[in-house]
Design a protein around this nucleic acid. Structure first.
Lengths: 252, 252
DNA sequence: TTATTCCGTGTAAGATTTTAACACACTTTT
DNA sequence: AAAAGTGTGTTAAAATCTTACACGGAATAA
């Protein structure tokens, strides 16, 4: 009842970005402004909206605007990445141990992750911050030098972490992909880490939005056949999809 | 003139997250509220802040992860902590290497840090995110299990990082202090890290707001005489101050 | 130089929005 | 059945914001 209305308000705000109390009143003619105010107050407490004079706006909306290098990046292909992240989140089973990389797609995955009992290793600061909010997720961040452009860590020392840890699954993303050059990224040290990850993990899922296809970055860390599942969006080319399915790689 | 003030307001908001008009008025006593309002309006036009009832908040603040327990904590004694952080920031020289812990005071220090060429080691996620915004700061984060309540990392493996690194200075904060029990914190693993830090660093500066005095936490990691400089606020008791200065510890 | 315009600012009244306090109906607990 | 709790509406008061106008100084034009 009350909760339904609050969720509806949250939805509206996420869609419209910003609403005045008057507009809200039009949507909900059967309750008073005061009630709507109280709903907004509650949503504010939950950190989902910001109340501004005259009404409220969605936090998500604000997060879209952005100015910084990293946050800027998150705007590109955001919708596709969120959808990919949602698919990936469904693939994660309880009581497992997995690695997630530090890219922007991974950050969306972190947001979409169910709050279940899993152990996550990551080299992404933003990923870690997101996951830290989930009560049931055990979280370990790999140390090392912080790469400022993507807020991930990379360090030869990371290897020492891996010596004593195990995980079944690695869910990672690449900055670029071509069938010839495989999955590549911008930094050598990151490529090293991901290669190492490939060896440690029993399975590797790759998140790749279609904008990455055809691009080449300096350091290849995996080839087409190295992965087990490819998670992508609807614009993924059909002919390329065949190349994966021919090798028994699940494309979804 | 006008632009300077506007930029200063933007800076303040980025650091403090949110300010009321009254607080702004305290910062800028020589101009009227109306002028500040107009400044805020302009910053809003530029998309850098959001005006909320009573004042404004930084867009960057919103873009950070919202609603986590950590941000709540930051409200306690915020003003004192910021002042302490400002003092500490002035003590940092260019071309040095230092360790900063992961507490909330440390996060304010990170915000106040000048963007100079230094190498910073930290075990704080929030600290790292802040410092990552500064172009000239080399940043290394210690890996390990993430403690969700204070967004810092702790791990026995952190030791392996320290084996190959050196820093002149450690600037840390404590959760509690009494003359008898020294500086203490809530987690054993964190205490271990800080003890180790003490041994690695040539000098140790302690940031301690006066609300911590008289409290005792389970794990002591340093005694009164272990530190070189104590950075605190104006409410620091005079008799206690003497105990430090008697041992040639600078209190500021 | 002098006049004119523009810009940034201050003041204050008026409009708007928000809060606080109380009342009421309805549900759940004791 | 009483008591406590929850969700809601109404209203007045408080807080905040906007609007309109005035003023001084700097820049520009005559």
């Amino acid at each position: 009842m009350k909760r339904d209305r609050i969720e509806e308000i949250a939805d509206l705000l996420d869609k419209r970005g910003k609403l005045t109390l008057e507009q809200l009143d039009d949507y909900f003619p059967h309750v008073s402004q005061m009630t709507l105010r109280r709903d907004l107050f509650q949503l504010e407490q939950e950190g989902r909206i910001i109340r501004v004079r005259g009404g409220a706006m969605s936090v998500k909306e604000v997060q879209k605007v952005s100015g910084e290098p990293y946050t800027k990046k998150t705007a590109i292909q955001m919708d596709a990445k969120i959808r990919i992240a949602q698919k990936a989140a469904h693939l994660i089973d309880e009581n497992t141990s997995l690695f997630i990389d530090g890219g922007t797609t991974a950050m969306y995955l972190a947001k979409e992750m169910p709050d279940i009992n899993v152990h996550v290793f990551t080299n992404g600061l933003a990923v870690a911050i997101e996951l830290a909010q989930k009560k049931n997720i055990h979280l370990t961040i790999l140390g090392g030098q912080v790469l400022k452009d993507n807020l991930s860590t990379a360090s030869p020392v990371a290897r020492s972490y891996f010596d004593n840890t195990n995980f079944e699954l690695a869910i990672i993303s690449a900055a670029a992909f071509t069938p010839e050059n495989g999955f590549s990224c911008a930094s050598q040290i990151e490529a090293d880490l991901l290669k190492l990850t490939r060896r440690k993990a029993k399975a590797m899922y790759m998140m790749l939005d279609s904008s990455k296809i055809g691009k080449i970055m300096p350091y290849t860390f995996a080839r087409l056949e190295d992965i087990d599942v490819l998670i992508t969006d609807d614009n993924f080319p059909a002919d390329l999809k065949e190349k994966f399915t021919n090798r028994n790689i699940v494309v979804m």
